[in-house]
Design a protein around this nucleic acid. Sequence first.
DNA 1: TGCAGTGTACTATGTGTATAATACACTGCA
DNA 2: TGCAGTGTATTATACACATAGTACACTGCA
Lengths: 128, 128
Amino acid sequence: MRGITLNTRDPVYEQVMNHFKVLIANGELRPGDEIPSRRELARLFQINPNTVQRAYKEMEDAQLIHTERNYPSKVTTDEAVLIQVREELLHHAVETFVDAIHLIQVPMEEVLARVENRINELEREDDR
Amino acid sequence: MRGITLNTRDPVYEQVMNHFKVLIANGELRPGDEIPSRRELARLFQINPNTVQRAYKEMEDAQLIHTERNYPSKVTTDEAVLIQVREELLHHAVETFVDAIHLIQVPMEEVLARVENRINELEREDDR
DNA sequence: TGCAGTGTACTATGTGTATAATACACTGCA
DNA sequence: TGCAGTGTATTATACACATAGTACACTGCA
């Protein structure tokens, strides 16, 4: 588990939750995998343990992770939940994007060109 | 100027600013156009006049609008600023979207299909 | 000349969030 | 058997934001 770059806009506990959702959605975290302890993740992400606890608590409530006594929390083995996570992330991304370009009435050709540009940028970053 | 649907997540003054940026970007607001007074917009949007004032103040600082004494504020006549507004909205939308789908590794075909779906949804909403 | 509306400014209150500092029961392990 | 680490919980402080309420100088207009 690597670090994370936090923005100052969104609540930190939400960014932590989203980080785990992404790891789950792209398969880096698999059903049953152990995740870092509250204190360890707080050190890793340079945030307060209470903030991590809040994120874990909400992920627990959303049945994304599962905790027994003072054992390491684990990613749920409920496949339906995991599929739902990917679906939600994707749906939110598409909806936000299309609504935005629709509002400012960007021609489809310009949209596609911009998207391709950005994809190429990211691939160059991955290669580095 | 119609009403607005506010979310509870982002600061209201930012949502107000973004609302005006969209109106500028899609041409509904043109250079030199007058915009509602602080108190009038507050009534229209059902928010506090102080919140509107903050939004207008920041738009003033960003040179999006211009105010003289106690006359109605007007959209700037600086075309470069207006072009920049559209550019920023578009750039932000594309970057956020591509970064998100890249993180969860969605195949391009699935992305395009989803985007088309959402576009069709919006067009049906427009027709209604 | 009044008066309503304007932009602007200030104080105060409540809420959500992040942090700091503890605390406690429980577990694995040296 | 200790002890470090675990999940969990509580209290206090600080900050940004939204709101409520008030105030003042200025303007156009009836």
